[in-house]
Design a protein around this nucleic acid. Structure first.
Lengths: 111, 111
DNA sequence: CGGCATCCATGACGATACTG
DNA sequence: CAGTATCGTCATGGATGCCG
């Protein structure tokens, strides 16, 4: 416990977009490339592609290519990827609470 | 739940060092500047200082200055900061498991 | 549709030196 | 002891254009 292995988890979640991608895939089961792109405002194709590749390499998500024209590629979480769910949800919850916390701190500063 | 507030939590944890600092403070209650520096190999003074400042601004840690020569500054987690503990621990645990997962994937690749 | 290749800006991070 | 201050770097992320 003296050494910190949270690095490993953070390495996978870090990046401006990865957790957002995972959130979409946690709530949608299966999504196509452009569905993800639409669901995540501001992300560029390049970023979406690279982040998906990294998540795929880490066995967090699965990439399914349908060899047809026009191409169709579906992304979904792997069973292993599901193990991240509690962490993501905990962070999500904590984040929401933190916003309240900030508001409280702000109103106290106004007194 | 459609929007992802995990951002907020990640913003606080992101950075190469913040989670390591928090881990030390989670396991040690109170630490002085140089104690932290020694406990986290590779970190520079500049990084330690800046990361501590950011955590302090987010009300995660507390900074206690003893006005004396030589100076003495102690850092500890705030009560609010303790709310991050479950997340850090979950990530730590997940990280350890992930290492095993990688080893399994590797040995399978060898078959 | 779902990419990849290229170029470019920014800022996170680091090395080093100095200070009350 | 616990910091600033300054400067340099390199990776991350972003904009754009082309392709099967």
């Amino acid at each position: 416990m003296t050494t910190c292995k949270a690095d490993t988890a953070l390495e996978i979640l870090i990046g401006k977009w990865k957790h957002k991608i995972l959130f979409q895939l946690m709530t949608h089961e299966v999504l196509r490339f452009n569905e993800l792109k639409r669901a995540i405002p501001g992300i560029t194709q390049k970023m979406l592609t690279s982040q998906l590749r990294e998540l795929e390499q880490n066995d967090i998500i699965e990439r399914n290519v349908y060899p047809q024209i026009p191409p169709k590629v579906e992304y979904s979480m792997t069973e292993y990827g599901q193990s991240l769910r509690p962490i993501l949800e905990a962070m999500h919850e904590w984040g929401q609470n933190h916003i309240k916390h900030l508001e409280q701190a702000y109103s106290k500063a106004q007194e």
